[in-house]
Write a protein that binds this DNA or RNA. Structure first.
Length: 454
RNA sequence: GGGCCGUUAGCUCAGUUGGUCAGAGCAGGGGACUUUUAAUCCCAAGGUCCUGGGUUCGAAUCCCAGACGGCCCA
């Protein structure tokens, strides 16, 4: 169809090009005129008008077109002409019904607005809206850009199990399923972290995986129960190296997906050009809330301080969760321009290496943009004894009622005991990255088929 | 989990104080028309007013409960 338009472009009104062309697509408009029919046909490159007359097409062919419904998929063979009114068209010598549409498409001009129908029957949304189609093309381009960036840097893409005997690598409740033949329960992964680290133990050194993670939690504008995650691990790198790579990668992907590193966001702009602002988490929390969390190492103490500052602080939340609460309530919404928060409390980070200068903190950062967390990274903990202690802390959290605390993974500890090189690791939520790059404010706008009730 | 809002024809939407309020445009059906561009003109048809209760002489409209969805908050 694009080629047919190219053929017709140089024609003057009323002229006809040499040679036959064939186009196929969905009928989006039809203007019947007795013994003449004009039909607009659309494919993914755009539309072209088919012009059918009784003289050229005969009674049967014209009848087929006259009886066709908007929504039908038809093929037209003929010559390229420019009509007297200047429209590049295919003057039909033959038409063919390729697929009947038994149901009417969404209204062409009003579009499809009902969000429920848009999400449940995404094909109608795609059919009705060029912008929605472009949205998912941009998503594909962004993810291809991530792969290209990492491949060019010598990373290899690997695939690790989705069905796992023990879940881990994040704080979340899992989905549980059952293997009939083995008669055992398995978990859908909440992260790829612990398997990718096994790859590092084995010497693959620079690996990444792009795939779905599954978290058994609520649905919101930034959460879908299954979502697309990138994780990367690079041997002999630390979290500073990872931060530098992340900035470059996001900037490169922004260029590939949108053409530049300054992107529109909620009526303003976000400048993704490296370097991004870096702040120590504890300093940023104090600026945003007035609370120095390290000065309140006791949970009850911190809770009281938070409530005095007007923040929500659940009775049962341990110290680490309270710090996370200050972050999400007081700080995260302010982080519109890209910001890297460095050096997290150990309690929040069971797989990150301790800072040598302050054992209460770990070498970890999270990157925020558009008021959302988009990435999480650390210098990976590779000391098996320390890792075993961290699992014990998580176990204590579980026993204290935290159902998001993950169980210990003895097989992973065995791998670490074989020696994992010092490693920088990164997790980047690709759905949120696409939201950012396309100025969409709900994760449902960037996932083709988002989770819905029933 | 909490608050607010929404649900009327295939799509987009009106619907006044509870009383010819079951409506429009487009799509779909029948007809006219050989250069149209959201073609035009004529005709006919199209409904579980989300569901279930309740109030009332009378409910799309008011009340209660529920389902689904959206937004905001947590």
């Amino acid at each position: 169809m694009a080629e047919a338009r190219d053929v017709g472009e140089p024609l003057e009104a009323g002229a006809e090009a040499e040679g036959q062309v064939a186009v196929a697509g969905r009928l989006v408009a039809r203007r019947g005129q007795g013994k003449t029919v004009f039909a607009d046909i659309e494919d993914r490159s755009g539309t072209i008008q088919a012009w059918a007359t009784l003289d050229r097409l005969g009674e049967q062919g014209l009848g087929l077109l006259a009886d066709a419904h908007v929504g039908d998929i038809i093929g037209v063979r003929g010559t390229v002409v420019r009509t007297r009114r200047g429209e590049v068209s295919v003057a039909a010598d033959a038409v063919e019904m390729l697929a009947k549409s038994l149901r009417p498409p969404p209204d062409r001009h009003a579009g499809l607005k009902d969000p429920e129908t848009r999400y449940r029957q995404r094909y109608l949304d795609l059919m009705a809206s060029d912008e929605v189609r472009a949205q998912f093309v941009t998503r594909a381009r962004a993810i291809a850009g991530v792969r290209r960036f990492l491949d060019d840097r010598g990373f290899i893409e690997v695939e690790t199990p989705v069905l796992q005997p023990i879940y881990g690598g994040a704080a979340a409740r899992p989905f549980v399923t059952h293997h009939n033949e083995l008669d055992r329960d398995l978990y859908l992964r909440i992260a790829t972290e612990l398997y990718l680290k096994r790859c590092l133990v084995g010497g693959l050194e620079k690996v990444y995986e792009i795939g779905k993670d599954f978290r058994n939690e609520g649905v919101s504008f930034k959460h879908n129960p299954e979502f697309t995650m990138l994780e990367t691990y690079e041997a002999y790198a630390d979290y500073e190296d990872v931060a530098a790579m992340l900035e470059e990668m996001v900037a490169a992907v922004a260029v590939q997906a949108t053409g530049g590193t300054v992107i529109p966001w909620k009526g303003g702009e976000i400048d993704l050009t490296p370097p991004w602002r870096r702040v120590r988490l504890t300093d940023a929390l104090e600026d945003a809330s007035g609370i120095d969390v390290l000065a309140h190492p006791d949970a009850a103490d911190l809770r009281a301080r938070m409530r005095a500052a007007g923040l929500d602080a659940p009775d049962t939340a341990p110290w680490g969760k309270l710090v996370d609460g200050i972050l999400s309530q007081a700080l995260e919404p302010q982080l519109v321009q890209p910001t890297i928060l460095l050096d997290y409390p150990l309690e929040l980070s069971p797989f990150a290496k301790r800072r040598e200068d302050d054992p209460r903190l770990v070498e970890r950062f999270e990157a925020f943009c558009g008021g959302m967390e988009i990435a999480n990274a650390f210098s990976e903990l590779n000391d098996p004894d320390d890792q075993r202690e961290r699992f014990a802390m998580l176990q204590a959290d579980r026993e204290a009622g935290d159902d998001e605390a993950q169980p210990s993974d003895e097989d992973f500890l065995t791998a670490l005991e074989h020696g994992m090189p010092p490693t920088g690791g990164l997790g980047l939520g690709l759905d949120r990255l696409v939201m950012l790059l396309t100025d969409r404010h709900s994760i449902r706008e960037v996932i083709l088929f988002p989770a819905m009730r029933t």
